[in-house]
Amino acid sequence: MSGIDLVNGTVGALLGILCTTLLQQPLQDAWSRFRRRSATRVRSLTYRQGDSGAASWSTFAIGPLQTPALVVEGDGVHGIAPETVRVQVLEGEVALPEDMVPWRAEIEAEECAAHSAGTRVRAWNGPRYAVEGLEISRTALEEDADVTLRLRPTDYFTFLAAQQLDRRLPDGTTPRERYLDPDRPLEAPAFLQCSFGVNVAVVTADHLLVVSRRSDSVRSGPGLWGSSVNEGLSRHIDSAGRGAPDLHEVARRGMREELSLEPHEYGLTLLAFVLDVGRRQWSAHFAAHLRELTGDALRSRVSHGVADRWEHQGMEYVPFRPADVVDLLLRPDRLHRWAPVTPALFHLALVHTHGRGAVERAEARAVRRTR
C-alpha cells in the first residue's frame, strides 16, 4: 500500500466515524418520529374504517356510568399549551338545509308568542359559533398537541333547530339519520354543530371540587349536575367583531361570571377537547386550582352575589380525591343526572392532579362495589 493510499484510507475512516457520530442521533430521532406518526395514522385509519363495521373509539364510561362524551384530544396527564391552539373564524354564516328552515321559524314564533303572553322570558337569539372542524396534529419536536379549531358564525335559534336531531323530516328521515355516520363521529356538517363551550373543574386551596347543579330554567340540561363552570362561546362577547375568540379567555369569563373569581386567584390548565356525540356539542375541558381561596372562602364570595347566579340552583364541595369523586359520580341517585361531558371532565382533572394509575384504581374499586 502506497503512502497516498494509506492517507486516503485514514481520511476515509475518520470521515466515516465523523458522519456516523453526527448523523446517528438525528437519523434515530427521524425514524422514531416516523414510526410514531405511522402508528398514529394506522390508528386513525382503524378508527375511520372500523373493525367489522364498529368504531374503535368509544365514549367515556365508568362501569354503569355511560356517557356520550368522546374525548377527542387530551388524556389529563399533560396540559395543552395555549400557544398550540389556534382558533379560526371562517366567513359565511351557517345555513340550515331547506327542509329544516321552517323549524327555526317555528322556534322564533314560539318565543315571540310566549313573550307576548307573559308565560316565560323570551329567549335571546344571541350570536354564536358553529364548529366547522377540529384538526389535531403534533408539534415537530416535542410531539405535543397542535390544535386548529375552525368556526363559523351562527345564532341561538339555529342551534335550537339543529338540536332536534331525531325529529322527522318531510321524507321520513331524521337529521341524525341523514347527516351523521355513527362510525365517523368527528365528521358532521357545521349546521348540526352550533355549540362550542368551555367546562371548568374548579378545585379550592383546601382541595375541594366544586360541583354545580344547573337551573331548571336553562334550555340545555335543566336540573342536571355539572361542571364547576360552564360557558358557551359568544360572538357578541368573546369576539365582538375584532377577531377569533381565545378559549382561555372564555374560561376566565366563566370563572368571573359564575364564581366571581379573577385570573390572579387561580391557575388554569386546558386538559382536553371533548365531543358530546349525542347532541353534537363541543367542549374545551379546563382545570382551575385556586391559589388561596378555601371552600369556605369561596362559599362566602358566592353568597355576596355573582353575575350569572340564575344558571345554577345548587353547588356542592367534594373532597378532590379519586375515591370521593368517583363515588359521587356513581351514586345511584346521580348516575343518570350528570350533564353529558361532566364525568369525563372530573376524571381528567383527577388524572392531572393524582395520576392515571391512582384514578383508574379508584374507579375499578368503585365499579366492583356496584356489582
Score class of each variant (00 low, 15 high):
H264R: 13
E135A: 06
C194R: 07
V200Q: 01
G172K: 10
N230F: 09
H115N: 08
S239Y: 04
V229P: 00
Q163W: 11
I4C: 07
T174F: 10
S195M: 11
G16K: 08
D5K: 14
Y47I: 06
V101A: 14
R371P: 03
H289F: 07
H304M: 14
V7P: 00
H78I: 11
L293N: 00
E108R: 04
P263G: 07
D276M: 04
V359F: 08
P319H: 05
A69R: 11
G314H: 05
R337Y: 08
H352E: 03
T269Y: 02
S227C: 14
W282D: 03
G133K: 06
G226F: 10
N230Y: 08
R128M: 15
L141I: 10
I107K: 11
D324G: 08
V351M: 09
L14Q: 10
L70K: 01
A287I: 14
E360V: 12
T119W: 11
H115S: 15
A123E: 10
R301I: 05
P82L: 04
L298N: 06
V277Q: 06
A69Q: 09
H285R: 01
L23E: 02
A201R: 02
E91V: 09
E249Y: 01
S217P: 00
Y266R: 02
V72T: 07
E132C: 02
A109E: 14
D327Y: 00
A140R: 13
A162K: 07
G254S: 05
L70R: 02
F346S: 05
L23H: 02
E311Q: 14
S58G: 15
L165G: 12
V85P: 03
T67Q: 07
G241P: 04
V218F: 13
A323T: 15
D99P: 06
R214S: 11
E292W: 03
R256P: 02
C194H: 07
P68Y: 13
V77T: 15
L268K: 00
S56L: 09
E106Y: 00
D324R: 12
